[in-house]
Computed example of a mutant assay.
Amino acid sequence: MNAEWFQQQLALKRLSQRLLARYLGLDPSAITLMFKGKRRMQLDEAARIAEFIGAPIEDVLSNAGLVLEGIRSKRINIVGHIEHNNRLVEDEVSTQDTFIVPSNIPEGTVGIRVLNTLSPLHRAVLYFRKENIVDAGSIGRLSIVTLPNGEAYLAYVDRGTEPGLYNLKFIGVEGCDKSVPSGGRPFPLDDVLLKNASPILWIKP
């Protein structure tokens, strides 16, 4: 953990660790422990930190020490891409390439490429294993979610006000966009039904 780099990035933007903690929904002590190397940064946290400080995701990952730990080469199918509105578009023909992934990536994992210039994840490859349910591991994490109309999106998932309902927060989306399922309403989406949700397992810049 290169804490000095993170502190410099916060200082350049005139931001504080407390504001970062609030943005991530964490106690300020969790940020302190993370910068001291006593708490491991999670991948979804890295993506949100990149958005918060306006830095490339690869810089956040490398300075957090998340790039080179426990990795190996593996052939992964790239099955689609994320558009500017965070919608997942499945490619008609999947491509396959060799990627560096963590050793614990499960079988059945596929990749999607982010093509959203507004997102800190632009051009990154995200790995996930598609689930047919709302995976409990997707709560509080960046995930691929499918709405009742069958459209799939990249979003952070939190529990809604009632059982079976969920709140979605999108990154790299400005204002309203009538091409997204909110019907032009501002983000985030609150108390929506989901067909399934699959957490992002790894991010390759």
Rank of each mutant, 00 (worst) to 15 (best):
Asp27Arg: 15
Pro28His: 08
Ser29Leu: 07
Ala30Cys: 03
Ala30Tyr: 04
Phe35Glu: 07
Phe35Val: 00
Lys38Gln: 14
Arg40Gly: 01
Met41Leu: 15
Gln42Asn: 03
Ala46Leu: 05
Ala46Thr: 06
Ala47Ile: 05
Ile49His: 02
Ile49Ser: 01
Ile49Leu: 07
Ile49Thr: 09
Ala50Asn: 05
Ile57Ser: 04
Ile57Trp: 00
Glu58Thr: 01
Glu58Arg: 02
Val60Lys: 12
Val60Ser: 07
Leu61Tyr: 08
Ser62Cys: 03
Asn63Phe: 02
Gly65Tyr: 09
Leu66Ile: 08
Val67Gln: 11
Val67His: 02
Leu68Val: 01
Leu68Lys: 10
Leu68Tyr: 07
Leu68Pro: 00
Arg72Asn: 10
Lys74Ile: 01
Arg75Leu: 12
Ile76Lys: 10
Ile76Thr: 11
Asn77Trp: 07
Val79Tyr: 13
Gly80Trp: 12
His84Thr: 12
Asn86Ser: 15
Leu88Gln: 09
Glu90Ala: 09
Asp91Met: 14
Val93Asp: 07
Val93Tyr: 15
Ser94Asp: 15
Thr95Gly: 13
Ile100Pro: 04
Ile100Gln: 13
Ser103Ile: 11
Gly108Glu: 14
Leu121Glu: 10
Leu121Gln: 06
His122Ile: 03
His122Leu: 02
Arg123Tyr: 13
Lys130Tyr: 08
Asn132Ile: 09
Asn132Tyr: 13
Val134Cys: 07
Asp135Phe: 08
Leu142Thr: 02
Ser143Thr: 09
Ile144Cys: 04
Pro148Gly: 07
Pro148His: 11
Gly150Met: 05
Ala152Gln: 10
Ala152Ile: 01
Asp158Gly: 00
Asp158Leu: 01
Gly160Cys: 01
Thr161Asp: 08
Glu162Arg: 11
Pro163Asn: 00
Asn167Ala: 07
